[in-house]
Amino acid sequence: MSEVPGVVPDPSSGSIRGRTPTGLLGDPAPLLMVRGVSKYFGGIQAVREVTFVVERGECVGLVGPNGAGKTTLFNCICGQLRAESGAVEFAGIDLGRMPTYKRARLGIGRTYQRIEVFPDMTVREHLLVAEQARRGEGRLWKDLCNLSRPSSDERGRVEDVLELIGITDIAGTPVSALGLGLCRLVELGRALVGEPQLLMADEPSSGLDVHETAELATVLRTLQKERGMAVLLVEHDLGMVGECVDRTIVMDLGQVIAEGTFDEVMGDPEVRHAYLGTTT
């Protein structure tokens, strides 16, 4: 594995539990710290002792061949799967056994490898429901008293995101009438509307054409620069990865095999072997 700056020490060297969540108090602690995370499915070890950090405002690419464990790792970070060992810390807070919805409300937004949309809703409703959920809205008495209508602020934020990713013209369309590429953009908008500190995008360009992929890369870059949002990007389109990321982590067979700048890791023989089956 390549030696790279930013990698945290061995997980056995000290527990991160009990640390003050200094990240929220302005400490320059990393936004996301993954330490020694492992996940098994029966006898298969899908993720092995993975350790890395994502700094605030940083765009990190997570690449690797199919079956490398990238999406499983995403699921462990988001709480959709429970890791057998290791720890995940977000903004100084140990996520431990925290459920997925609480992690989302902390500021982790996510898109999915396999499209996950709400077919009964329009594009705008997708973003509105995400906006309300992120802030923990949803009281029965408010609904009964007709007090839960979205505020003008909420509507404004939704319109901003629609405009940012260029889907304002289909805002009133049910997502069931959209194609795969547009659904991916809806997912992205839904993740962005809560202004997350960390966006975890799982193969966002899958199903998009070259032009749309380029636009998506621009959006991600804009978000990172203008909003200071960190991005953890799983992507098979290495061109897009090279264009977007500050740092790249390569996984194979569940473990990190290289980390560094995009050019560095692409030149790594172990990475070439993982992708091509040869070191030449």
Binding site: Q80, A104, R110, Y112, F118, M121, A133
Partner: peptide, 14 residues
């Protein structure tokens, strides 16, 4: 409505 569509995504948005 969100849960009917996708429980995974519903949890993922909070």
């Amino acid at each position: 409505g969100a849960m009917r569509g996708s429980e995974t995504a519903a949890a993922g948005i909070g």
